[in-house]
């Protein structure tokens, strides 16, 4: 198939970027979106031009590194699919495809289509630790957990932190990501120990980093490559409200001040 690509090119965070047009011919419908970009980069290198910088790692849809804004949608038109798992058969011969990086204040552009998502890492860091016993590995199923809870926790833990939720949210809010991370621990007894502290710290960090506020447009849930549900956001709101109202605050003696 033949394609016209409009790709965002930007040298670094400090410079102004612009769209460049590229024409590609004879692309196999069986190739993945990233393979199609590989072909283009190969061509650019042969022509002594700067190849297009884009993020990718596993190319199996499990690491969350890839992420392109394709024709107005994160990870392209296919539901529940990462960019690396998107195939060219989802496009038509002669299509014009616009490719942009994630756009959010909290995700500054590094180069071309690569953005810096370390804001997500900072939120995870702010969440802190979980208390577990050290020593021998515990017996499996030594702590009974309702099946539904463990299923829900597992579904929340499927978040790969790609940032598509932030990218698609009209408010550039990170609520789906943060709520998935809060949920997968809050749902399990092992995660309950620090739950109140964790949710408050992660939300505070998220706000500090300049993500927008959730207005329940639910676009994130529709675009998430891992189909993370917005019920996680409600759960996080619940956890947060509960923590703000009921969590004890340490006395001066307890904090050591």
């Amino acid at each position: 198939m033949n394609l016209t690509l409009k790709i965002w090119r930007q040298k670094n965070a400090g410079t102004k970027g612009k769209f460049e047009k590229y024409k590609l011919t004879d692309i196999s419908t069986e190739s993945s979106f990233l393979e199609m970009l590989d072909v283009l980069n190969e061509k650019l290198i042969n022509e002594n031009q700067e190849p297009i910088a884009f993020d990718h790692d596993c190319r199996e849809g499990i690491c969350g590194t890839c992420g392109l804004y394709i024709n107005g949608r994160p990870h392209g038109p296919e539901k529940g699919t990462t960019t690396c798992q998107l195939h060219m058969r989802k496009f038509k011969d002669g299509d014009v495809i616009t490719i942009e990086p994630w756009r959010a204040k909290a995700f500054p552009i590094v180069r071309d289509l690569i953005v810096d998502r370390s804001a997500f890492d900072l939120i995870l860091q702010a969440g802190g630790y979980t208390s577990v016993n050290t020593g021998n590995a515990p017996d499996a199923n030594s702590i009974p957990i309702p099946k539904l809870d463990s299923d829900r926790a597992f579904e929340s833990a499927a978040c790969i932190g790609c940032g598509a939720c932030v990218a698609t949210c009209k408010n550039a809010s990170a609520m789906l990501f943060v709520s998935a991370k809060v949920s997968h621990l809050a749902l399990l007894p092992q995660g309950r120990i620090e739950a109140a502290e964790r949710v408050q710290k992660m939300v505070a960090k998220m706000d500090e980093l300049g993500f927008g506020n959730c207005t329940n447009t639910y676009a994130c849930e529709m675009e998430c490559p891992k189909n993370i549900s917005v019920s996680n956001i409600a759960r996080m709101n619940r956890e947060f409200i509960k923590a703000k109202i009921f969590a004890e605050v340490p006395t001066a003696v307890e904090t050591g001040d």
């Binding site: 409009k6 927008g212 506020n213 676009a219």
Partner: peptide
Amino acid sequence: QNWAARPHSYAVWNHSQETFFSKYM
């Protein structure tokens, strides 16, 4: 605040996945 959270908007933006009226509150 939400407006400031995305200083540079997209050239192509397909809003189709948002619930309709939530966009215009």
